[in-house]
């Protein structure tokens, strides 16, 4: 029988009431990533002050996993030194989500991380495998 273990309350809560949703005016960094396979889109705007993420907003559309993951990510990023944000790993993201993500859904969960790494740190040479491709 199906249970609700996968779509835990806090995930649905972040999906329904995304934190830090919207755009920043004149952001220091803005980047979007798109997953053409399912149409998931996540974009983030950053305001950087003295090497610290002073403010961040995200926008996007897609499944509950990608959008909740983005919402959780912005909460984590706010007030975080760039140096530290640079070190966020795939494992950190999955731990924060706290649910078992199947291989097929990994890309959804890691799309926000891709936005952070590619956009905010100008990593053009990303290893697609890092993000579940």
């Amino acid at each position: 029988m199906a249970d609700d273990q996968f779509y835990r309350d806090y995930i649905l809560d972040h999906f329904r009431h995304p934190r830090n949703y919207g755009r920043l005016e004149n952001p220091d960094i803005a980047h979007e990533e798109y997953n053409p396979l399912c149409g998931d889109l996540v974009g983030m705007d950053f305001r950087i002050q003295d090497g610290t993420i002073e403010d961040v907003r995200f926008h996007g559309r897609g499944c509950a996993i990608s959008q909740a993951s983005a919402s959780l990510m912005t909460e984590r990023l706010k007030g975080m030194p760039l140096e530290e944000a640079r070190k966020i790993t795939k494992e950190d993201v999955l731990a924060e989500l706290g649910i078992e993500i199947s291989a097929a859904r990994l890309k959804c969960a890691l799309l926000p991380l891709k936005v952070v790494k590619v956009g905010a740190y100008g990593l053009t040479d990303v290893d697609e495998e890092e993000f579940g491709s």
Partner: peptide, 29 residues
């Protein structure tokens, strides 16, 4: 309000297998 991926994941938990995605027909999507 429910993305096909989420639908498919929930249906899978009911042991119902469907396809979620663009079905290799992106122009039609």
């Amino acid at each position: 309000g429910i993305h096909p991926h989420d639908l498919s994941t929930i249906l899978d938990r009911h042991d119902v297998n469907i396809r979620a995605g663009h079905n290799c027909t992106m122009p039609l999507m």
